[in-house]
Design a protein around this nucleic acid. Sequence first.
DNA 1: GTCTATATGTGGATAGAC
DNA 2: GTCTATCCACATATAGAC
Lengths: 241, 241
Amino acid sequence: MTKAAAANRHEALSADTRDKILDAAEVLFAERGYSAVSTRNITDKAGVNVAAIFYHFGSKQAVLDEIFKRRLEPINRRREAMLAECIGPDVENYSVADILTAFIAPTLDLGTSSFKLLAGRTSTDPNPEVREVMFSVYDSVARSFFAALDKACPHLSKKEMFWRAACVYGAMMYIRADNSRLQYIFGDDFSLSNAEEAVRYAIPFLTAGMTSPPVDEPAGRLRKMPTKTAPSSNTKKRKGS
Amino acid sequence: MTKAAAANRHEALSADTRDKILDAAEVLFAERGYSAVSTRNITDKAGVNVAAIFYHFGSKQAVLDEIFKRRLEPINRRREAMLAECIGPDVENYSVADILTAFIAPTLDLGTSSFKLLAGRTSTDPNPEVREVMFSVYDSVARSFFAALDKACPHLSKKEMFWRAACVYGAMMYIRADNSRLQYIFGDDFSLSNAEEAVRYAIPFLTAGMTSPPVDEPAGRLRKMPTKTAPSSNTKKRKGS
DNA sequence: GTCTATATGTGGATAGAC
DNA sequence: GTCTATCCACATATAGAC
């Protein structure tokens, strides 16, 4: 609107336009989903010309890609820094809770609230364009964490770890996605958007699950099991499903 | 199946077209997402005319709605039957594992594999049309379960239950959604699509989380971190978006 | 670098012949 | 009930003037 564009000889404005597009798209994608937002929706909200997206990024998909790259970099840097504090030579002292915190907390309290929503909501988006971006941006960080968890939980087979990882991932992504389903059930006083509460209440839940006894009887030689976590008092028999 | 189809001889052909549309749409929505599938994609795959969707359902959104209603009915009937076996007069004997199994198992081994994917993948879809359907079809069943869990876990405040419910929901939906992210990390030998394995390995995880000690003191006084480990120094507050 | 104008295709949905 | 033909709004993307 404002024609301060008069003072725009440098690329300052170019970068500004890029960021305006990314900011607007991030919010819209989070609110309505990638597929339901058009490039015109984005440029309208960003206050830039319709052609700017294609000049600066080349395609709508490239905008999504840039959104993730830009936010994930600091998040993953922090995750790795926190993980580095958790792992050391004394494997016996690995803390599952700390590893899970290092994995999850930065995804909840870094970046923008819109990106948090977007990341959670796109994590299971089947749209091929979205999936392509997801697989290109999510990289080796997760491997480092599961390697650390593996050392911290030597009583678990790879298969058991796989299923527990799914529970961890699912909880983390669902909390990030923050659909309002649970508010609908529990009431408006409750919300998944509070990062401190999420860490406070979800990490202990996941730690208890991760450190619980293995389902399969250990056939081979195993290292000792964790002893600090309180055993679940209510795990009675299950009938087969 | 065949006899039931023969029973409604009148609308046999009409119902057939309806079902062809629903079947095709269920698969396509699961594979690519609601927003990325057009009505023409659906009618092409179903082998029916393009106008059939609007004649039989009125809109694309109504097709999604019907897909959910048709599959959710038997799933929720089974859930409620299983829950009924878990709850009784002797609250002391409520089994968290059994309640969770009643809640989750039917969503994994009933219906089609496409519907399982679709349900998981749409659970956090922000598209307004999809959300509208989600809120219209998911009903009181969840309330019954959380009421039962509340009785089985009297040591938990409503807030603690809220966060644990989020973890349970998230794990269940993520497993249903079965994006291939974890295969990418753990290898192709592992898959979330096996319902028996899901029940076998995920329910104990969630039961351990659900039955773990409360984070907050029952008296109402708060303490730092409930786990054995020292509180992570990295969980300090950070400003939101 | 930014804009207008437009190319080109597809979306959901409908009318009306059969 | 089914199909052809079609409406029209909007999609992504580009060309070329400024």
